[in-house]
Computed example of a mutant assay.
Amino acid sequence: MSLETFWFALVAVLFVMYFVLEGFDFGVGMLLPFLGRHSEPDGDKRRRVLLTAIGPVWDGNEVWLITGGGALFAAFGGWYATMFSAFYLPLLLILVGLIVRVVAIEWRGKINDRKWRMWCDVGIGLGSWLPAILWGVAFANVVRGIPIGADAQYTGGFFNLLNPYALLGGLTMVLVFITHGAVFLALKTTGDLRHDAQSVALRLAIPTTAVAAAFLLWTQLEYGEGWTWAVVAIAVVAAVVMVAGAYLRREGLAFGATCVAIAATVGLLFCVLFPNVLPSTTDLAFNLTVANTSSSHYTLVIMTWAAVIMTPIVLLYQGWTYWVFRQRLAVERIPEHGGLPLREEASRAGRS
């Protein structure tokens, strides 16, 4: 395997990890107004349980996006430059959504005021729905291809990105993430909140599987190779197991299945893309590929050594974090008003 191919595979792994881990964070944010309604007497406590469930890990999960973007910039500068100029507006909106979400999560408990918390909840919702939709649209367009000229410049407009395949990708990402989040909450909570999360996962299991299957089939038939049917099969089996886990109320099984399904879906997009990194719909001769967008061999060698050393450290640290905060959370163990860091509130609300 060449270093160029190795780094394409590593970029794929980094984005797979991001979508698997950050996916349930987005799902929890999208479910916040439904599982923690303001009209309920314990609505604020329920919302704090939802946020506490992701509190110790959500910022660590975003490290995979930062690392993936950095690896893309360093290893494939040409891919990075063209893609970020073509998707400037969608990526800007994703960034704004992520910033609003960060601020809302961190500042929600700083002021004991109902309206303050309500507006923070709006920010969390906006910062969850918007990136979920736009990530699906962006990655679908990367696979489909965009108008690129001989100078590797994007020659289309914003509405070129809103094609049926890309919109289906956005819908798929939203449904998969919200189902992923519901299953995660069923795994992390107790009592009525756990039951409500299970009910949401149960209602979403079939529609999510149907939409995701349509997207996978379209991707495979239009852009796939013979061997990539194996990746489709893995995603389909995982989706079936997720549905079975939801109906049997086996949230551990269902959560593992959604992780595999998301990994296989994102992995399929990278598999059908290779050896291209950004196809041109103008002329195949203008395709951006692994070969013509990669950095120098020396740069890739240095990056490879850094990755070999640092990646195991990141995995060990993040795995330790998930282990420490593995307890289920209960509404009755949440104090009347927040203000504590989410990690401390998670420790107090947890039950071994």
Rank of each mutant, 00 (worst) to 15 (best):
Gly339Ala: 05
Phe177Thr: 14
Gly123Glu: 01
Trp58Ile: 03
Leu35Trp: 11
Leu221Glu: 14
Asp113Thr: 01
Pro207Trp: 07
Thr265Gln: 06
Val176Gly: 06
Phe270Asp: 05
Ser39Gln: 13
Arg114Met: 04
Pro275Asn: 06
Gln318Trp: 12
Leu269Gly: 13
Ala261Tyr: 04
Ser2His: 11
Arg326His: 12
Ile66Val: 15
Ala166Lys: 10
Trp107Arg: 14
Glu40Lys: 15
Leu98Thr: 03
Thr299Pro: 01
Val174Cys: 09
Ala182Leu: 06
Asn141Val: 03
Leu161Gly: 04
Thr52His: 06
Ser294Thr: 05
Leu175Tyr: 01
Phe139Pro: 01
Glu336Tyr: 01
Leu98Trp: 12
His297Pro: 01
Trp64Val: 09
Met242Glu: 13
Ile313Ser: 01
Trp323Glu: 05
Ala71Asn: 05
Ile99Arg: 07
Val314Cys: 02
Ala264Ser: 10
Leu269Tyr: 07
Gly68Val: 06
Leu35Ser: 14
Pro335Gln: 09
Ala246Gln: 04
Thr304Val: 00
Thr281Cys: 01
Phe159Asp: 08
Val290Met: 09
Thr189Ile: 12
Glu222Ile: 07
Phe73Met: 09
Tyr322Asn: 09
Ala306Tyr: 04
Glu4Asn: 08
Leu31Ala: 08
Ile178Thr: 15
Gly123Phe: 01
Thr155Ile: 09
Glu251Lys: 04
Phe215Lys: 02
Pro131Leu: 00
Ile206Ala: 12
Ala140Arg: 09
Val176His: 05
Ile262Glu: 04
Gly267His: 04
Gly319Asn: 10
Phe255Glu: 03
Thr67Phe: 08
Asn141Asp: 14
Leu72Trp: 08
Val266Met: 13
Thr258Phe: 03
Asp42Met: 13
Gly338Leu: 03
Ala233Tyr: 02
Trp305Ser: 10
Ala197Ser: 15
Gly123Pro: 01
Val11Gly: 05
Ala291Asp: 15
Arg37Tyr: 03
Thr265His: 11
Ala306Val: 14
Gly127Asn: 10
Leu248Ala: 13
Leu51Ala: 07
Thr304His: 10
Val143Leu: 12
Gly338Trp: 07
Pro90Ala: 12
Trp218Ser: 09
Ile146Trp: 02
Asn276Glu: 13
Ala182Gly: 12
Leu65Lys: 00
Leu315Ser: 08
Val96Tyr: 06
Asn141His: 02
Gln220Trp: 13
Trp79Leu: 05
Asp192Gln: 11
Ala12Phe: 00
Met30Tyr: 10
Glu344Ile: 11
Arg328Ser: 08
Gly156Ser: 08
Gly339Met: 02
Gln318Val: 10
Ala132Ser: 15
Asp121Cys: 06
Ile206Trp: 14
